[in-house]
Amino acid sequence: MFEAKLTEGLILKKIVESIKDIVTDVNIDISPSGISLQAMDSSHVALVSLNLSMDGFEHYRADTNMVLGVSIANLAKVMKLADNNDQITLQADQEATHLKIIFENPKTERTTEFNLNLITIDSEHLAIPETEYSSVVTINSGEFSKICKELFSLSETVQITTNTDYVQFSVEGEVGSGQVRLGHNDSEKKEDQTILEVSESVQQQFAIRYLNMFNKASTLSSFTRLCLHQEQPLVVEFKIDNLGVLKYFLAPKISD
């Protein structure tokens, strides 16, 4: 038996909205300690990794480990039934054929229940090694989204360069070439800070369209954390306060 209740159901709505354009069918791993999922996009260029801790739920019970195969596209449709201030409860029996989703609004006395049919997916699971990232950039999530959108109109590819003084996003295309350079900014307004932790410079190229899809998650956190290592995929991380973390992994482009 699995049951989890989230008072702020809006968070779950946002999480589903943040991953639905990247992954289609996912296996949701339920354990007594929390909920996690890992899935790649169809081209295996990007990977979504979500980890939610049981502590972040108003009520959480999972007697055993379970795997719930879910079509994210269908889950997104069901989530549309939820109002932004609904409480959301997820329920599934052992060997369940469906996931029961309940939206409750205690104020308006409105309750919505939906049994989402589960699917069987033989998705491959990747072992993601613990990596010591030599560059970690913490940037305002809205600002990073804006930079990616604006640069995307100038080029499909962005080159990210880090060093101890700045992080630089540069593009080159038939329009011309240029870069956005952000230095360390510890402004008193915390959410405007840009924090650079660089032990080794990194220079890699990435497809901006994936970054734009990842940035859908900027509604979940006021900060985006970029973790870079010269030989490793980029990690774009959004911390979900009191609940967990949503991470996106993106393979670099290799200039031939």
């Binding site: 081209s43 990007a46 990977l47 491959e124 072992a127 497809a207």
Partner: peptide, 14 residues
């Protein structure tokens, strides 16, 4: 030109 890598060249399948 830049070639897009995939994650499978970085992470082992379990």
């Amino acid at each position: 030109i830049e070639l897009q890598g995939t994650l499978k060249s970085f992470f082992e399948e379990m």
